[in-house]
Design a protein around this nucleic acid. Sequence first.
DNA 1: GTTCCTTTGAAGATC
DNA 2: GATCTTCAAAGGAAC
Length: 301
Amino acid sequence: MYKETVYSAFNLLMHYPAPSGTGQHPQSQPPLVSGPSSQCPSGACCLADQHKASQPPHSVPQLSPLYEHFSNPHPTQVPADISQRQGVHRPLQTPELSGFYSLTSGSVGQLPHTVSWPSPPLYPLSPSCGYRQHFPAPTAAPGAPYPRFTHPSLVLGSGVPGHPAAIPHPAIVPSSGKQDLQPYDRSLKTQAEAKAEKEVKKPTIKKPLNAFMLYMKEMRAKVIAECTLKESAAINQILGRRWHALSREEQAKYYELARKERQLHMQLYPGWSARDNYGKKKRRSREKHQESTSDNSLHYS
DNA sequence: GTTCCTTTGAAGATC
DNA sequence: GATCTTCAAAGGAAC
């Protein structure tokens, strides 16, 4: 009832695109596999399912309360200096999110305009690796308005100088000092070296996670437990399919969380831009990328 | 030790 | 404005 209300109201407000029957996504079309696959060689996922039935539920990872911050914000989570500096009216307890869920506020999270709704999986997946009913959305804690799980980077106060917690914000990563350094003549010390040292001390602020990344972070442990997989590439393929299999409502949760994540990121690091990290990773070879895209076009044609 | 793989989405870069 | 590119996470594999 509650969810239905939210859903219909959300649709009304957002003009959310209806699922396309032919939902094509240029990069997310799953490979046509059946039975044992690269993700589940020898059908290990099915076996894992049988195994799971005889196992206590401890193998299912604890629900990561990503919503904890939103449902139970603590006033002290917002350092005064941050909120004042940013002109944020305290408390930044993210009541907007509860507003989102109850739709009492007008600031409903805007979903991406470019959301494409894929067609259902074209291949049979093992229950534990592909079927949504075996992979339910997080259930709400008793009394909680919504499933509770946290995303570490949503914990306000972390990474803020002077904050008692003194835990760095996950988006801040100490620079290794290697990756960022350009090769240069070692005999040329002075300015270049000083600059390099400065670069080392300067922490890298990472991009805020998007909706799918938040979903992956939340669900990865479950997939690993269910499918007995460890390779991230294979796990991510499964998660990509499951993401497409989610209902709009379920995805909307993550889009909203991602929006909050970006908001918080902007407030914590007002001068930061994605440009700051642009080109820091080694650029992949153009040839390889083109090769894969041509493969894809061949595959889907 | 570094890069690739693999996914989606956001955002910068380019045309 | 459309398209391309990069980077967020993750950890095993490959180099």
